[in-house]
């Protein structure tokens, strides 16, 4: 019995290999696509399969043995003797029916909400106008860490979206060939830049973790809904919204990093279901981050006057600080945030 299954397994893998071979060879013959540089030449050693591979068991019996286990539980431990799970089918369903169909809409929906918000509320101006005096907010190394992460994030986001959604977004419009080219490029780029994300994540964490822990003043922020719908909210160096974003990047980032490593080095895990789970978590986490990142970008640029200064110059206008981070302003300057800032003295070297 074991022997029979074994020989069937051989037969099956041989078949799969041949199929893969055909899949690679056929396009090469038909198009200008070359086999990947690391592809294995399968011309040699192909023989006829063993005879009587099916043995004397009925089809139903064979399939029952192969499957085994509870097909709904993707994380169940491997059952002895079981050679095939049906989780691959479930993974395929989750991917095709949910992720590919709906996930891509998340960033677009966020962009839509932001556009509506912008049209209704417009940019948040510094109410008191710019004072012309600035106070330091982010050090150079913190800014570089931020922009480094931003750059890596954009590269990985774009290439990742091509890999994930190329089939449904690119292929129908630009054709399979173009999608193949783009996906090949994106995959190589994504794999190479992936490890840099881990580096960027650690760096970002070290540079920004201070001031990002929960503080009691955050409760007020929550009750006032962040002041997005009016009302003044006090906050220290980072408000609750920024803290959520920070921890989201860090925690989801860790998940993406780990699942990414698993996908980059599949031999690290023994159970194929880890790989299936990884692709799902990786995609959902990443697209979620991309969606929220649009909100972050919005409020850092056109959404709020004076925000971008903190990341470009490292300094923010005093009035900006008073309005958005009053408690932090008081900590840094030792002055009251409700007093008016006098205009800078003329003779000061600018």
């Amino acid at each position: 019995m074991q022997n029979q299954i074994h020989s069937f397994r051989n037969f099956l893998s041989l078949g799969i290999l041949m199929l893969m071979f055909a899949a690679f060879v056929a396009p090469v013959a038909a198009q200008s696509v070359l086999p990947p540089g690391n592809a294995v030449n399968l011309d040699d050693g192909i023989e006829e399969g063993p005879s009587n591979a099916l043995g004397n068991l009925s089809d139903t019996e064979i399939w029952d043995i192969f499957r085994g286990g509870n097909p709904r539980d993707i994380l169940a431990p491997t059952i002895e003797g079981q050679v095939m799970t049906t989780t691959g089918q479930q993974w395929r369903v989750i991917r095709e029916q949910y992720i590919l169909k709906y996930l891509g809409w998340a960033p677009l929906i966020v962009i839509g909400i932001l556009a509506v918000f912008y049209l209704i509320r417009g940019p948040m101006k510094i109410a008191a106008g710019r004072s012309g005096k600035t106070i330091p907010r982010f050090s150079l190394s913190a800014r570089v860490a931020h922009w480094f992460m931003a750059a890596i994030f954009i590269i990985l986001g774009l290439t990742g979206l091509v890999i994930l959604l190329g089939r449904v977004v690119i292929a129908p419009y630009l054709g399979l060939e173009a999608n193949s080219v783009l996906t090949s490029a994106a995959l190589q780029g994504h794999n190479l830049f992936g490890p840099l994300f881990i580096f960027a994540l650690i760096w970002l964490f070290i540079k920004f973790v201070r001031g990002n822990f929960f503080q009691w003043v955050d409760l007020k922020w929550i009750f006032k809904l962040g002041g997005f719908f009016g009302g003044h909210v006090s906050s220290r160096q980072f408000n609750f919204g920024e803290k959520i974003w920070f921890w989201m990047v860090i925690l989801v980032g860790i998940v993406i990093s780990i699942t990414g490593i698993i996908m980059l080095f599949p031999s690290l895990v023994e159970d194929v279901r880890w790989l299936q789970l990884s692709t799902i978590l990786h995609a959902v986490g990443a697209v979620g981050l991309i969606a929220v990142a649009f909100g972050h970008i919005y409020i850092g640029t056109i959404g709020m006057e004076g925000s971008i200064d903190s990341m470009l110059k490292g300094e923010v206008d005093e009035n900006w600080a008073k309005e958005h981070h009053d408690l932090w302003y008081e900590e840094v300057t030792g002055k009251s945030a409700t007093e008016e800032t006098e205009a800078p003295a003329k003779e000061e070297i600018s």
């Binding site: 540089g37 490029a185 780029g189």
Partner: peptide, 8 residues
């Protein structure tokens, strides 16, 4: 980097 696969 994009051309690393050498497939296209």
């Amino acid at each position: 980097c994009f051309a690393l696969e050498q497939a296209h």
